[in-house]
Design a protein around this nucleic acid. Sequence first.
DNA 1: CTAAGTTGGTTGCGACTGCAACCGGTTCTG
DNA 2: CAGAACCGGTTGCAGTCGCAACCAACTTAG
Lengths: 154, 154
Amino acid sequence: MAEPTRWLDEAEQRVWRQLLSADCRLRERLDRELRVGANLTLGEYDVLVHLSEAPGRSLRMSDLAQRLLLSRSGLTRRIDGLVRAGLVARRPCDDDGRGSLAELTPAGLDRLRGAAPVHVGGVRRYLFDPLEGPDGLAGLAHGLDRIGRALGAE
Amino acid sequence: MAEPTRWLDEAEQRVWRQLLSADCRLRERLDRELRVGANLTLGEYDVLVHLSEAPGRSLRMSDLAQRLLLSRSGLTRRIDGLVRAGLVARRPCDDDGRGSLAELTPAGLDRLRGAAPVHVGGVRRYLFDPLEGPDGLAGLAHGLDRIGRALGAE
DNA sequence: CTAAGTTGGTTGCGACTGCAACCGGTTCTG
DNA sequence: CAGAACCGGTTGCAGTCGCAACCAACTTAG
């Protein structure tokens, strides 16, 4: 085999670096806005969103960890913090003695309602407004979809 | 003011989540491949790349930190590791007694040459191959460019 | 029914990061 | 030519993360 390595041309290199940079700065910005506007981390916000969309406003820990692209231990600690803050509660799982459910509390739902406008505003401002245009969104969506499939494959 | 918050529609929500997910998994994958294939972190690789492209294969610490989107303290420690590994050397800055230069060593350049094919292969496999197609790259590039400008503005 | 294997969640540990404080060197100001 | 303000780099500290080890509960095989 020993393929001779097809290097990246100028344009590809620029796109690649822009992707890393844009994403990094985007996360940073949104996290900061969320912290000052709703006293929530982007990661914590993500937990609340996923729980709020789940039936019963609750999810198994492992399930939630997978959706958040987080290790199980990472989720354990993130939930610890949210429990301390009273935004999430742990419940034992009825049909599996090992399991825990993370459940959104009323306070958690309130906090989420306060945070959502801040977050959505940022996403609009930094992501979708700049993409405004005919091919922008569709092209990006298409590309991301195919990248996602490639990542999910092997 | 008190705008009524324009929520994200279904498609926008999907794009946004895919962007976060794709980028997260992409970084993870590339980092892992680089670790096993060249014994380098993605962050360390990034340092070597930037140094190798700089005149004199060296850069001021602050300058480098900015390019890497890293805090100064973060860079100090990343360079610490690379110095211990013999891939980078610190040199005092001639025209400014406070400054330090990070300089790529010959060993660092060798290591970079070994790592580059691994990294480029991954970027091709997970980013550009999936984007193959007429509008894919151009659309994504355009979008990223505008996002970058929006992030850089305020 | 019991023993082995598997799965869900937590904990110890080390790695990495940013912020704030700090120190020496530089530049501005009177 | 001082003294103040500033700047570049490093360090203490706290927060977050993944991996490996662990325990308890479920499942499967004999």
